[in-house]
Amino acid sequence: NRRVIAMPSVRKYAREKGVDIRLVQGTGKNGRVLKEDIDAWLAG
């Protein structure tokens, strides 16, 4: 149960899109989840 590193704005964006942020692979520094990662996850 790893802790997800993401800015609050990215967490909010994921919530609005209905994405469980824990399932998204972060590509930022130290595995940080970026807004682009959410978009990529939604695109498949």
Rank of each mutant, 00 (worst) to 15 (best):
L34P: 00
E16C: 06
V10Y: 01
I5G: 03
N1K: 07
Y13M: 04
K12M: 06
S9M: 11
K12E: 05
G26T: 04
G26K: 03
V33I: 14
M7Q: 14
R11M: 04
Y13W: 06
E36G: 15
L23T: 12
G28F: 03
E36P: 14
D39T: 10
E16Y: 10
N1M: 04
A6I: 05
G31D: 08
P8S: 08
K17A: 10
Q25A: 13
D20H: 07
A43Q: 11
V24G: 01
N1S: 09
P8G: 07
A6P: 02
R11S: 03
P8V: 06
K29E: 09
R15Q: 08
G26V: 03
G26N: 04
R15T: 10
I38E: 00
A14G: 05
R11A: 03
D39F: 05
V19W: 00
A43I: 12
G28P: 01
V33A: 03
L23D: 11
L42Y: 09
P8Y: 07
M7K: 15
T27F: 04
D20G: 04
E16K: 15
K35V: 08
Y13A: 03
R22D: 07
D39E: 10
T27V: 03
K35I: 07
K35Y: 05
W41V: 08
T27I: 03
R32I: 05
N1E: 13
R2D: 15
D39Y: 05
V4K: 05
V19P: 00
K29F: 09
I21S: 02
A43W: 12
V4P: 15
M7S: 15
S9W: 12
V24P: 05
Q25H: 13
K35H: 06
L42S: 08
A43S: 11
L42C: 04
G44Q: 13
R22A: 10
P8F: 04
D20T: 05
D20Q: 09
A40S: 12
E16H: 11
G28N: 03
K17G: 05
R2S: 13
R11Q: 05
G18T: 06
K29H: 11
V33F: 01
A6N: 02
D20V: 06
K12I: 08
I21D: 01
P8L: 09
N30C: 07
R22Q: 13
G26L: 02
D37M: 01
S9L: 11
I5E: 07
R32N: 06
G28T: 02
A40H: 13
D39W: 06
W41I: 07
R32K: 08
A6H: 03
K35N: 07
R11G: 02
A14S: 09
S9D: 09
R3G: 15
E36R: 15
P8H: 09
V4N: 04
I21E: 02
V24A: 05
R2L: 15
I5T: 08
Y13T: 02
D37S: 02
Q25K: 12
V19H: 01
I21H: 03
D20L: 08
V33Y: 01
E16N: 11
A6V: 04
V33N: 00
S9N: 10
E16A: 13
Y13I: 04
G31M: 09
V33C: 04
Y13G: 01
W41K: 07
R15I: 11
R11P: 01
D39L: 09
I38G: 00
E36L: 14
M7W: 15
N30V: 08
A6T: 04
S9E: 11
R15V: 11
R32H: 08
K35S: 08
A6Q: 02
G44D: 14
S9F: 10
W41N: 05
Q25M: 14
R2A: 07
I5N: 11
A14Q: 00
L34Y: 12
Y13H: 08
K17Q: 14
G44E: 13
N30E: 10
V4A: 04
W41P: 01
S9C: 14
G31T: 05
K29N: 10
S9T: 10
R2G: 15
I38P: 00
V4E: 04
V4W: 03
D37N: 10
E36S: 15
M7A: 15
L23N: 11
V24E: 00
S9K: 15
G18D: 11
I38Y: 00
K29A: 10
N1A: 06
W41D: 03
A40F: 13
V19M: 06
A40P: 01
R2N: 15
A14T: 02
V19N: 00
L42K: 07
R32A: 09
R22E: 10
A6Y: 03
I38T: 01
T27M: 07
N1H: 13
L42H: 08
N30W: 11
N1C: 06
R2P: 12
R2F: 06
V33P: 02
D39M: 09
D20S: 07
R3H: 15
R15C: 04
R3P: 15
K29R: 13
V24W: 02
Q25N: 14
R3Y: 04
K17D: 01
V19T: 04
R22T: 11
L34R: 10
K35C: 06
R2M: 10
I38C: 02
Y13P: 00
R22N: 11
K12G: 04
V10H: 02
Q25G: 12
A40R: 14
L42A: 09
R2H: 15
R3V: 15
I21A: 03
V4M: 03
T27K: 07
Q25C: 06
L42G: 06
P8T: 06
S9R: 14
K17I: 10
R22S: 11
L42D: 06
A40V: 12
G28V: 03
I5F: 05
R11E: 02
D20M: 07
A40E: 11
D37K: 00
V4T: 04
G26S: 07
G44T: 13
P8N: 08
V24M: 07
Y13F: 07
D20R: 06
A14P: 00
L34W: 06
V4R: 03
V19I: 11
A40Y: 13
R3T: 14
R32F: 07
R15K: 13
D37L: 00
G44L: 14
I5L: 08
W41M: 07
L34A: 06
K17E: 08
N30M: 13
M7H: 15
E16F: 12
